[in-house]
């Protein structure tokens, strides 16, 4: 069975992570920001799975499971915050929440 080189998988993961990062930095809509964070988590999970496959151990996959659980919790809280923000400020613009300005 042919195999994918480790380096390539990690590069794909890095590329997807980079896209997620761009998303976080560029979007003002909080929903897009949350989506971008999901992308980044997913990319990190990909790297874990690759490492698990490289060493033929289940540990990498276990890590992905934890990431999954974490992402679920984070999305639940994050989306409730989006709802709350929308209710309070009438917008989903992340830049509108700037009361902490120094």
């Amino acid at each position: 069975m042919a195999a994918v080189p480790m380096t390539h998988v990690l590069m794909v993961a890095a590329a997807i992570f980079g896209l997620g990062l761009v998303g976080v930095l560029v979007r003002r809509n909080i929903i897009f920001v949350l989506m971008s964070i999901e992308v980044m988590l997913n990319a990190a999970g990909l790297a874990f799975v690759a490492a698990g496959a490289r060493w033929q151990q289940a540990d990498g996959q276990v890590m992905f499971l934890f990431i999954l659980a974490m992402a679920a919790a984070e999305v639940a809280v994050g989306l409730t915050l989006v709802l709350q923000i929308h209710r309070r400020f009438g917008t989903v613009d992340a830049d509108a929440m700037s009361r902490l300005r120094g």
Binding site: V24, L25, V26, R28, V33, A94, D95, M97, S98, R99, L100, R101, G102
Partner: peptide, 15 residues
């Protein structure tokens, strides 16, 4: 100088 970096914008902090 430091308080100028506190823009209150999440994106700046992420940057």
């Amino acid at each position: 100088a430091l308080s100028a970096t506190e823009t209150g914008r999440v994106r700046t902090y992420a940057t």
